[in-house]
């Protein structure tokens, strides 16, 4: 399990990174945290001509929590988000989710943006991106563009990103302070990829729900936002029965895949149960 030969190219600036990606014309991969890419290399399931290392680019590091958005640079590690208590206070769903990504050594190295670019349908960050309507900034030699999460994921481990593009940052608009959010997932063991994960955001006014968002991971080739279930919640009074109904709607809306860890029937059931549970936690957290 030794990686195949590749050329290692350390980028010295974002512009340089895009030039390198252009130079290899689609046959280079961006190396950030490497926690998904390097196993693929070690298994020889990926064989790029070059790796463009962006870890040295200070301008892509760090995160910034604003009043109504969270800005995360391309080499910001999961652990940095996990250890910021203000993020947990401002948007608990993010803290719920990030704590469930792999293990500490993985979170120390793996990056938020790398996880999004890898686009594993069971992963937390792609789901959070969908839940919060994140915006990605992608750069190529030709220029920069912004891609909305809803238009980004186009299949299993597949996105609309061109291989010559690099995501430089992601911005997560944050739900209002008075909202409640939660991320709940079910995995075989601690730290495993979830069989199913559900993220929920609820806003209430005058004891009824004014806005609700539900995203489910692990049930399709991309994370799925379930509008039909959100509609059930709009204008209704929060409560167990309502959340259970939303769960039932989710179960009718998803068409999960089967694998050795759980078949479609089971995943659909999980989606239903976890939706109800996530909504309950989110509602509880709503002011």
């Amino acid at each position: 399990m030794k990686a195949p030969r590749f050329e290692y190219r350390a980028a010295t600036s974002v512009a340089h990174a895009t030039e390198l990606l252009a130079e290899y014309d689609g046959d280079a991969k961006v190396l950030a945290g490497g926690q998904s890419l390097v196993p693929l290399l070690n298994f020889r399931l990926s064989n790029p001509a070059a790796l463009v290392d962006i870890n040295g680019l200070g301008e892509l590091g760090g995160h910034r929590l604003g009043a109504d958005e969270l800005h995360v640079g391309a080499v910001c590690r999961h652990r940095e988000i996990e250890r910021d208590p203000q993020i947990a206070a401002r948007c608990p769903a993010i803290a719920d989710a990030v704590a469930q990504i792999g293990h500490v050594a993985i979170r120390n190295r793996g990056t938020v943006v790398g996880s999004i670019a890898h686009a594993d349908p069971a992963a937390e960050w792609p789901g959070l991106a969908m839940l919060l309507d994140a915006q990605f900034t992608a750069r190529a030699v030709q220029g920069e563009r912004t891609i909305a999460a809803g238009a980004f994921f186009d299949g299993f481990l597949s996105t609309v990103l061109d291989p010559t593009e690099v995501i430089t940052a992601v911005t997560f608009p944050l739900p209002p302070v008075a909202s409640g959010s939660a991320w709940i997932e079910f995995a075989r063991r601690h730290g495993d990829f979830a069989l199913v994960g559900v993220g929920a955001v609820i806003e209430c006014a005058d004891e009824s729900i004014t806005s609700a968002r539900i995203v489910v991971t692990g049930v399709s080739d991309t994370p799925v936002r379930v509008a039909a279930a959100e509609r059930v919640l709009h204008g209704a009074q929060p409560g167990e029965a309502l959340f259970a109904e939303a769960g039932r709607v989710v179960a009718t809306q998803v068409d999960p895949i089967s694998d050795i860890h759980g078949d479609a029937t089971y995943r659909r059931r999980l989606a239903q149960v976890l939706t109800r549970r996530a909504l309950a936690v989110a509602a509880d957290r709503a002011a």
């Binding site: 298994f43 075989r188 063991r189 601690h190 730290g191 495993d192």
Partner: peptide, 14 residues
């Protein structure tokens, strides 16, 4: 099940 991602050994959390 040819990886430790698919063959699930119990961890300290279990």
């Amino acid at each position: 099940t040819t990886t430790f991602m698919d063959y699930l050994l119990p961890t300290s959390a279990e």
